[in-house]
Amino acid sequence: MSANVDMKELYAALEETGKVLDRVEETGGSIKSVERNVRRMRGTLRTMMIHFEDLAALEGK
């Protein structure tokens, strides 16, 4: 893959970020500000996940 990026590693890190957001929401989701901001962050996170999900799956295939 170009740009010398390990796609599997990158995608795993993004998934990890999703899990951290789950934890933030589980812990503080009753605070409206936390719940809504997590939702926005998930939108941004998804933008990267859709880029790299398939590249990670295709890497080394």
Partner: peptide
């Protein structure tokens, strides 16, 4: 902006498109 995606080889790009 996103080098891996913008410079994919033909076959990988087609495979990616079919999956998507």
């Amino acid at each position: 902006w996103n080098q891996p995606l913008e410079t994919l080889d033909f076959d990988t790009l087609r495979e990616l498109q079919l999956r998507k």
